[in-house]
Simulated assay, not measured.
Amino acid sequence: MIAIVDDDESVRLATESLMRSFGFRTNIFASAESFLNSSTLPDTDCLITDVQMPNMGGLELHEVLRARGAALPVIFMTAFPEEQVRRRAQEVRAVGFLAKPFDGDAIMSLVFEALKNPSQAP
């Protein structure tokens, strides 16, 4: 299952639609907190999350997941692709870092990479 966490509804729905068009099961969340409080974490094979969201952003979400022992492949996306944020995503061994708006082929390539090598998740 692919979890999509983004406070922007249009991005959530578009990303969900793209994942479903490739046959993936998805769950969408408007916040990091709603994902963390859901029962879907054990079924999540890949996380796609926005970097900047109110309260808790994607990088902080990743830190909480690691602290809980959840080693998921993560793809970060952002409307503000600053170099220091990109470096931080690389440091935590993210599968990918995409600037919004992103190309559907680019994100699908990253999803397939994440699912092919789930053992390499941080």
Rank of each mutant, 00 (worst) to 15 (best):
4 I>K: 00
4 I>G: 02
7 D>M: 08
9 E>H: 13
10 S>E: 10
10 S>F: 10
11 V>A: 07
14 A>G: 14
17 S>K: 13
17 S>T: 14
17 S>N: 11
22 F>P: 01
22 F>H: 15
23 G>V: 03
25 R>E: 15
25 R>D: 15
25 R>C: 11
27 N>L: 06
28 I>W: 03
29 F>L: 07
30 A>I: 03
31 S>D: 07
33 E>R: 13
34 S>G: 03
34 S>K: 11
37 N>F: 10
37 N>C: 07
39 S>L: 13
40 T>C: 13
42 P>G: 11
45 D>A: 12
45 D>M: 10
47 L>A: 06
49 T>N: 07
49 T>H: 06
49 T>K: 04
49 T>L: 02
50 D>I: 04
50 D>H: 07
51 V>M: 03
51 V>C: 09
55 N>P: 02
56 M>K: 03
56 M>S: 04
57 G>A: 07
61 L>K: 00
63 E>R: 14
64 V>M: 10
68 R>L: 12
75 I>Q: 01
75 I>A: 00
78 T>M: 09
81 P>G: 04
84 Q>P: 07
85 V>Q: 09
85 V>G: 04
86 R>W: 10
86 R>A: 12
87 R>V: 12
88 R>V: 03
90 Q>D: 12
93 R>F: 08
93 R>L: 11
93 R>S: 14
94 A>Y: 00
98 L>G: 05
98 L>A: 08
101 P>S: 13
102 F>N: 06
104 G>K: 05
104 G>W: 02
107 I>R: 03
109 S>E: 15
111 V>L: 08
112 F>Y: 15
112 F>W: 14
113 E>H: 13
113 E>I: 08
114 A>N: 03
115 L>A: 06
115 L>W: 03
117 N>Y: 15
118 P>E: 12
118 P>W: 10
122 P>D: 08
